[in-house]
Amino acid sequence: MKIIKYMHIRIILILLISLPLTTLCKSDTDNYTDVDRNIDRAVEEGDYETIWKLSKDPDPEIRIRAMNGFMELGTEKSRSKIVDMLFDIDPTVRAHSAELLEKIGWKPKTDFVAVQYYIAKRDWKKVVSYQESAIDHIATRLKKDTDPQIRKEAAEALGEIPSETTYNILNEAYRHDKDPQVRLTAYQSMRKIQKVMTEELVKDRDNKGIDKRYILVGILILMAILTTLIFILPMIRKRGETG
């Protein structure tokens, strides 16, 4: 009897523990269903404000669904909001924004937005092509992104833009980032920048050395010409007088 009693107690405890989890999961699903209904209603009524409020929700999934609502609205104002969400803190939201914009054939009008667009797409080759214009954007992702993989990619991208500024940004990441892979990539990018900058210094020094040699040769040639003239002119003049 005791065994049966304990089994009953265990079953009850398991049910009590699992019930809140089931309720929680159901609650999340219901929440997204309600969000979708609200968005559908807002789209039908052309209610921009409701979708805009949802686009500010702390939950990235709700922000993504709100973006879909903006897409369905199809107004210039709603499309502009999708562009704004390229700057979202969450990488999945940024990526979804870029995907929607690509679908409608949108093209960035400024370098500032273009860099963020390609960051959202994680097209780092394109990002790096903007060179100095991209540094602040990449640095923001390296410092603040919640995804360590994106921080790692950002550190790698900065290594392709050699300058004192990018070196210092990478140094900060190397010293303070919590992820070892990010720190390692930052260190490797720093070494890469050091190598490039050292080569440029050597090249610059050599070029200056060549310039100095050319100047010296020019001076020597000029001195030779002047010396020759000093000796030849009197002789020419003397011949002219005797002739």
Rank of each mutant, 00 (worst) to 15 (best):
Y32E: 12
D47H: 08
L24A: 15
S27C: 08
T92G: 01
V217R: 09
K195H: 08
D90Q: 11
I135K: 09
I221L: 15
S163F: 03
E172Y: 07
K195C: 00
R141L: 09
R41D: 10
M85G: 02
Y48A: 05
L16R: 00
V113A: 11
D34W: 01
R141S: 05
D123V: 05
D179I: 00
V83H: 04
D123R: 06
D136A: 14
C25A: 13
N207C: 03
T22R: 01
Y187W: 07
L158P: 03
K143E: 14
M197N: 02
T166V: 06
D136F: 08
H176N: 12
E44I: 11
A95I: 02
D88N: 14
I138P: 07
A157S: 07
N68K: 11
A66R: 05
I210Q: 09
L158V: 06
L233H: 02
M223L: 15
A186D: 02
L15K: 04
I62M: 10
I39K: 07
I215K: 15
Y118K: 09
I150D: 06
K5D: 11
T242I: 15
A139W: 04
M190G: 00
T146V: 13
I161R: 04
G209C: 02
G209W: 05
G209N: 14
E164V: 08
L142D: 03
G46S: 08
R237P: 00
I64R: 15
K192S: 11
E72H: 07
K121E: 13
L222K: 04
Y167K: 08
R37D: 10
D145M: 01
M223G: 03
L233D: 04
L54T: 10
A155G: 11
H137Y: 07
N168K: 14
L170A: 02
T92K: 11
V202N: 02
A155C: 04
L100P: 05
V217H: 03
F112Q: 11
L170V: 00
E153S: 10
R213K: 13
F70T: 08
M1W: 08
M85Y: 09
Q194S: 12
I150P: 01
S27H: 12
M71A: 13
